[in-house]
Write a protein that binds this DNA or RNA. Structure first.
Lengths: 138, 138
DNA sequence: CAGTTAAGATTACAAATGTAATCTTAACTC
DNA sequence: GAGTTAAGATTACATTTGTAATCTTAACTG
């Protein structure tokens, strides 16, 4: 399967959050976070606005790439992902770790640790993952 | 600083391994792994061969992007990275984790665990990172 | 039913990317 | 010193990507 671009990924992301969905559902979802914290004093992020035509194009490309499917519903389509989010994010994670850390996970985590980007929650999540792993691997 | 593409990253990688380096050094390094396990029975990977002109183009782009510098040496240049590898890989890791896991490291690790992509070494590396972290964060 | 909408299809177009080939010119060779 | 090399500079070109605008046409509206 061809690569999914960043913009395409964001559209897929919206679809994963709720599907099947019409193009309009997806466009709405993409622009949603923007309106959520609208005109608040903290204009920190200025969420991007997705243009209707842009999203349609990306949906088309995703269909061509066989990342999503659609079924005709009266006048419009209902889209669904063909890719599982977990499978996709795992593949991307592995690919990055392969490219930058010779396939080893630890150096990535070490980078975070070094920069003090780990907090108590991360640590306890990691601990529990480790103990699960140990349970299953004597 | 502009984004560094995949191909550019591979060139940078070669440079990080040994610098300052001439264009030819870099081209040689890039094609090296290919020859290392040449004509062995296991033609598993078929390492890509880098074309001289291609690498030169990428070096040029990296200079333009201010990712590397060069100093004139008689007839040719000696290139050096302007970016630290660690800083760059950390930035990319954080960016991926931000995009796919809401900035949380644990879900990425969890994905690996689920797929049984963690081994004893990974686990002990993680454990030691955790205990270091705990040492510094009471 | 004729006109208007609006969904999706098609086309557009600049920038980035992968992958080189050609051009210039300073440096080496005889 | 004249000719040849070879390094880097410039140009090339197809594809992908981000970002839309325009075209078609089936469906809604009055």
């Amino acid at each position: 399967m061809t690569e999914i671009s960043n913009a395409e990924f964001e559209v897929l992301e919206a679809l994963w959050q709720n599907y099947p969905a019409s193009a309009n559902d997806i466009i709405a979802k993409l622009n949603e976070s923007a309106s959520t914290n609208a005109n608040s004093a903290d204009d920190k992020k200025q969420e991007k606005q997705w243009h209707d035509k842009t999203v349609k194009t990306l949906l088309n490309r995703l269909v061509k790439k066989q990342a999503i499917s659609f079924e005709k519903q009266q006048r419009h389509y209902l889209y669904s992902p063909l890719l599982e989010r977990e499978a996709y994010t795992l593949k991307e994670s592995k690919s990055l770790i392969e490219r930058m850390f010779s396939g080893k996970l630890a150096p990535l985590v070490a980078g975070f640790a070094k920069q003090n980007d780990l907090n108590k929650d991360d640590i306890s999540a990691l601990k529990s993952l480790i103990s699960d792993w140990e349970k299953n691997n004597d």
